[in-house]
Design a binder for these strands. Structure first.
Lengths: 240, 240
DNA sequence: ATTGACAGGTGTACATCGTACACCTAGATT
DNA sequence: AATCTAGGTGTACGATGTACACCTGTCAAT
């Protein structure tokens, strides 16, 4: 069986400490791309400029990234990977708060990242890992799985109708290497798997299996916010 | 002097009823672009394909749109313009709900539109008009202006740290035609003007004038959702 | 040591895209 | 009739992603 070892991992193996600055690697390319985008803006990041930055000919990059889209995906992977763990107390509310704020901080460190992330809602492994960790905080804090599911949608939605839910899991590009790991996904992201299992239900009309209703999830999120605002208004205005 | 009358309006003047299908116009170009994107996907919309669709040579388009960015901006304008008015009862909650849902429906009619809209957070006139109408619903429903301000941020944020607030008003590209109208903005969008006025405050530390604190707004939105979830959880779990 | 396979860097070349620029043309204005 | 001008045309160029053939140094197997 050939080529099964062709890792597309984010951090495959660091042979960088021994060889100081010689030889590219996927990680080195990605890191250089992130740095370059930080310094010069994402719009001026081209395969040529990046190659020049690395002192290499443009086509050399293609030995480490499949194409520019793959490069961009890799860049978000790097940043999402920077989020890092946050301490958990077992109370979902402060735990989730901390974690989300940490994510925001990581994204803010690279101004271009949100635009790139939104332009390609590719669910890469670190992304799934982050989502899984969030879900884990909710459920291990005692929140029911259905509610957790809806909350994840609420957090991923923009609530004035613009921008579809980021939690609408766009699977990563259907590469062979991904398909190879597909079966292992539930094991790697057990919390997401639990949500997916809970979300699948039978449509009473057609009798067919169906996923979640994005319109319903949107309205849930919207009402959550509006109800919250109403409470704030009543409390502040009428002195409890 | 010279060229001040070069209108970049969305619907400049409809000389289309008399001349059936002859001659381009900004509106005709934009509408064709929207239709083409609907049918073939935004990624295959190029100046050349669009020109071909209109039976015209590519460069002809540039007599009606400044460049491709302007074209895309115009396309969003068209769609935001499609949102249309919604009936208002004077109660902000159902009114806002209706309006937001209408916006979502308009955007969903054109799958590509959210991506385009988010890729260029340009605050075009129809966009400002929509926001202004939303704010108007809140305040005429009796919600205090400060709270309205925060809610607008909450609605525009993605709440897991990804994606900065759409309500962080990126001004439209600084064209001459825009600057000409700049002074008229408060009159055209009075509700937005009120929010802007309320948001400006003096920073206690430096003593300088400052806009709104995006971090604070983000945390407000996040807590709004988390508090709401907590209430739902308590109520459902413990039977009120 | 010889070989040969292969990971990884090179060079050339091309298709696609946005768009600058000069030109043309028909209808309106004087 | 002369002229202006809005608007469509044709050509051409630079930037960009990337296919493809090639070269080279390293290391394993002979």
């Amino acid at each position: 069986m050939g080529g099964a070892t062709k890792g597309r991992d984010v951090v495959p193996d660091a042979t960088e400490s021994s060889a100081p600055r010689e030889g590219l690697s996927r990680t080195r390319v990605l890191r250089a791309a992130v740095d370059y985008a930080d310094a010069n803006g994402i719009e001026s990041l081209t395969m040529r400029t990046l190659a020049a930055e690395l002192g290499v000919v443009p086509m050399a990059l293609y030995k480490h990234v499949a194409n520019k889209d793959d490069l961009l995906d890799g860049m978000v992977e790097v940043i999402v990977g920077e989020i890092g763990p946050t301490p958990a107390s077992g109370h979902w509310k402060p735990d989730v708060r901390r974690r989300v704020l940490a994510a925001r901080a990581a994204l803010l460190r690279h101004r271009w990242s949100q635009a790139v992330l939104e332009s390609r809602a590719a669910m890469t492994a670190p992304m799934l890992g982050y989502l899984d960790s969030l879900v884990g905080l909710f459920v291990s804090g005692g929140l029911p799985i259905d509610l957790t599911h809806s909350v994840m949608h609420a957090l991923g939605n923009r609530m004035w109708g613009f921008g579809e839910d980021l939690f609408a899991a766009t699977p990563p590009s259907e590469t062979e290497s991904f398909n190879a790991q597909k079966d292992a996904l539930p094991a790697r992201f057990p919390n997401l798997a639990a949500i997916a299992a809970a979300a699948i239900h039978v449509d009473p009309e057609s009798g067919r299996l169906t996923g979640c209703d994005s319109q319903a999830e949107f309205e849930f999120a919207l009402d959550l916010v509006l109800d919250g605002v109403e409470r704030l208004d009543v409390r502040d205005g009428k002195e409890d």
